[in-house]
Write a protein that binds this DNA or RNA. Structure first.
Lengths: 203, 203
DNA sequence: CAAATATAATGAACAATGTTCAGTATGCAA
DNA sequence: TTGCATACTGAACATTGTTCATTATATTTG
């Protein structure tokens, strides 16, 4: 009886249909401005249907978050390929910053949005952990080769993540306007700040 | 005819009444969860009245933001008093982090919340600028005495602000749960990370 | 002081939101 | 063909920010 399997398949297809539409709209308009009704319209179903596949709007968020972390990981793997761990660290930093600037609404729901973290604890530890590990491995490499003025991997991870996240999120929330005059200079300024930081903590 | 003056005074008193209630509720429940109706109830006026004194909810936000920056500045002035610029820098960092952790909802509306920046450009450049200048002066001091491995004041400001903001905001949005196991360790971890950073960039 | 005018406050109404649920339609099994 | 389970609908609910005709209050004028 392959009917239950088909039903199962249809169910996941429907979830993917919804997720895809949600991802598209989240990217364009952001999480907050995207309404369930809007998503329902886009896939030509009624609002109520979405609640047959997702508990609430947050669960939809988690699904898209997982996707987003996957994308970031892909960017890391594509952009940060140097065998020199210090150069690779710089590549990771640049990739992260550019990802944030070029996918601001995605970055928002990945790292800025408030999300009930009961679910998050599990979900973040899948794709999100992969992104983090990419950085951790690089830093482990740097530290084992005694290239940095920081000896603890966790501390180093926290430092660089905070730095790049701080830069990106302050900019996305327009809080850097006091410091950086011209808007179009932002990408370069952020990247320069990150690289100056790396230079300062490099032995 | 002192009547127009009294009217003026009553008008500002009413604004302050609203702002105070808003501040209280923003602190307790956050900006998003505080409704205009709730504020109106608290001061025993009708919802419509608030719109006679504030264009919209955002304008109320700006008013409270200004207050909040003032508070942060006070904390800086009280906590960061060392004559040694390096020690003072550390004091600023600790004060900033503790302020964020102890006033999470306030920190949120100061540095994380999305706010239309047409108004912000002006408003941020008053109290917000004073806070920033406190840091800038300290860093100018450090750099002029050749204590840091960073030579540019703007770069140094951006680095340390990003670092501490990154730490605080990642934690407030529960994104550090992947890295820091125990919740109660967070304050110490954040401060240690900040001080390790300072140590690394110190000559 | 009384009437006319200006100002202040109200609260019902609007549109949009996330979410629910009784009802309807569809497809599968007997 | 009949009965049942599953899928879907869309109206309804509560809540949100915001507006505006109406009412109440206060001030100025005659």
């Amino acid at each position: 009886m392959g009917v239950t399997e088909r039903k199962e398949r249809e169910k996941t297809e429907m979830r993917e249909l919804i997720t895809a539409a949600a991802m598209k709209m989240f990217l364009e308009d952001g999480y907050a401005k995207t309404s369930i009704r809007g998503i329902a319209d886009a896939i030509e179903y009624s609002p109520g249907t979405i609640y047959l596949y997702f508990k609430d709007k947050d669960e939809l968020l988690y699904e898209v978050q997982a996707d987003a972390y996957g994308r970031l990981l892909e960017v890391f793997q594509k952009e940060a390929t140097s065998t020199d761990p210090l150069e690779r660290l710089s590549q990771i930093g640049r990739a992260y910053i550019n990802f944030g600037l070029n996918n601001s609404e995605l970055y928002d729901l990945m790292f800025i949005i408030r999300s009930p973290m009961n679910v998050d604890e599990k979900l973040h530890k899948v794709n999100g952990a992969n992104c983090l590990n990419f950085l951790i491995e690089c830093l482990t490499d740097c530290i084992s080769k005694d290239l940095l003025r920081i000896n603890d991997v966790q501390q180093a991870t926290l430092q660089i993540w905070s730095t790049v996240h701080g830069l990106v999120s302050l900019h996305l929330r327009c809080r850097l306007k006091i410091m950086v005059e011209s808007e179009e200079d932002v990408p370069q300024v952020l990247i320069k700040t990150m690289e100056d930081y790396l230079a300062a903590v490099t032995k």
